[in-house]
Write a protein that binds this DNA or RNA. Structure first.
Length: 472
DNA sequence: ATGTGC
């Protein structure tokens, strides 16, 4: 799989049959040193074969191998031209995403409250593979209310304020959720997990704004140097996972009837305008609402701890997903088209002036949050006008070593000691989980963000550093 | 990511 360098930050995989469009990779040679051995370039090419795909099969600078589609992949299909939707283009953790909250605290305030704050969060934030969650749902009817109402339902039930919804992608609720397309098994898995972090790379971090790159935009986001912030990264837990599994199977069975062939069965897909396509999008929207309610409930739990231990509020900056397919309008060859934009490990980044932004963010653009690996920096970015890849950018540092490899390379206890020695408080769920998230398993997030900016995908706004991590 | 395989 040859990558042709078009510019220092843009590479092309030339179209050859059965690709319908070329591949485009936003990266630098330094970020993809083992490209000849990596499996993701073939995945970028495979995605380019999907019916209805327009432009190119894109990869963000944090691209790595995933299920069918690469993580860090963006692909848009033309709905009216038989364009498909593919669950593998969203990923198992549907609407996994990040929200950032600004505290009424400066980092110099933190030492006096840190232990009480971190112990409070340790007790209040359910996480790991167990069953604990902030909310216990009474029955399927209440889960359906979550699946239809997302963050809005959580706020209506007293777990937030109206401003939280204004600062969420889609105002906290995706329309057209169809709980009828969510299987009983998915419901069972989701019933007792609303308001829980999960495991893997999910976390709640207390951070400080370490450096501001753009004062005006940071101010519009409500951020200033030295400020304490909270970042929450989690998704739709077992419910989203089960929905992905169920609908991949249904699409595999339906593909012959639609005359669709794909080079990898993990690219199972169906036309957006087909029973299977509509069924998946309805279930996906339900999982997206579940994930937003999940982040909203964890926000409410964190607010109670911040109020009690630090006398501080937490004000939502924004909440944005990095695993989702959305029907959006984009210009293609000079005409506006309705596209199904898959972002898997890629973040929507609307430019300044976009009508879907709340009025107080419109001049600044959409906030994007890029968590680094544990113990390293995270970034706040904003969208830019005229960006390629359907207004999308990176979502994280990008894993370079498998969980198994990482878990063998370091002991969790040792990692915690190192982080605490650097002044980062750690409240983990399991020692192995901690070891698997060692920063050595990830790329340098600063290099990823530098390339994303240089490639014209986004602009840097602020750099955040961790003070305390509550790890899933 | 995930009742860490179906």
């Amino acid at each position: 799989m040859e990558l042709v360098e078009e510019s220092p930050y843009r590479f092309r995989i030339d179209r050859c049959d059965p690709m319908r469009v070329p591949g485009v990779v936003f990266a630098s040679r330094a970020l993809i040193p083992h490209v000849d051995e990596d499996r993701w370039p073939q995945q970028v090419a495979n995605v380019a074969t999907l019916p209805g795909i327009v432009g190119a099969s894109y990869a963000m600078p944090d691209v790595h191998w995933g299920y069918g589609f690469p993580i860090g992949g963006v692909a848009a299909t033309d709905v009216a031209a038989g364009g498909v939707v593919s669950p593998g283009g969203v990923g198992f953790d549907i609407s996994c995403g990040v929200r950032l909250l600004a505290a009424d605290l400066d980092r110099t305030d933190l030492p006096r409250v840190r232990d009480a704050l971190m112990d409070g969060l340790d007790a209040a934030i359910p996480r790991g593979m167990g069953r604990g969650a902030v909310w216990q749902l009474a029955d399927r009817a209440e889960l359906d209310a979550v699946l239809r109402g997302g963050s809005r339902y959580a706020v209506e039930r007293g777990h937030g304020v109206p401003r939280d919804l204004a600062r969420c992608e889609d105002a906290g609720v995706v329309d057209d959720a169809d709980p009828g397309q969510v299987s009983d098994r998915a419901v069972q898995r989701g019933q007792q997990q609303v308001g829980s972090l999960g495991s893997g790379n999910h976390f709640l971090e207390v951070q400080a704004v370490d450096e501001v790159h753009d004062e005006a935009v940071a101010a519009a986001f409500g951020l200033r140097a030295g400020q304490v912030v909270v970042m929450i990264h989690c998704g739709s837990r077992g419910l989203g996972h089960q929905i992905c599994t169920d609908h991949v199977r249904a699409m595999e069975r339906a593909m012959p009837g639609h005359g669709i062939e794909v080079p990898d069965r993990q690219l199972a897909c169906a036309p957006v305008r087909s029973p299977q396509g509509r069924a998946y999008l309805g279930a996906m929207a339900a999982a997206a609402n579940y994930a937003r309610a999940n982040r909203q409930l964890l926000t409410a739990a964190a607010r109670r701890v911040f109020a009690r231990t630090a006398g501080s509020g937490l004000h939502l900056v924004y909440d944005v997903s990095h695993n989702l397919a959305k029907i959006e309008t984009h210009g293609v060859d000079g005409a506006d088209r309705r596209l199904c934009v898959h972002r898997k490990g890629a973040t929507r980044a609307l430019p300044p002036g976009h009508p879907q932004l709340p009025a107080d963010l419109r001049a600044a653009g959409q906030p994007v949050f890029v968590p680094g690996s544990m113990g390293t920096a995270s970034y706040v970015l904003t969208g830019v006008a005229g960006a390629p890849a359907f207004a999308s950018t990176c979502h994280g540092a990008g894993r370079v070593r498998s969980r198994a490899q990482a878990g063998k390379s370091v002991r969790g206890q040792e990692l915690r000691r190192e982080l605490q020695a650097r002044g980062i408080a750690v409240r983990g769920a399991s020692w192995r989980g901690l070891a698997e998230e060692t920063p050595q398993a990830y790329k340098d997030v600063s290099a990823v963000v530098d390339v994303a900016e240089a490639a014209g995908l986004c602009r840097r706004v602020a750099r955040l550093v961790p003070l305390g991590v509550v790890k899933g």
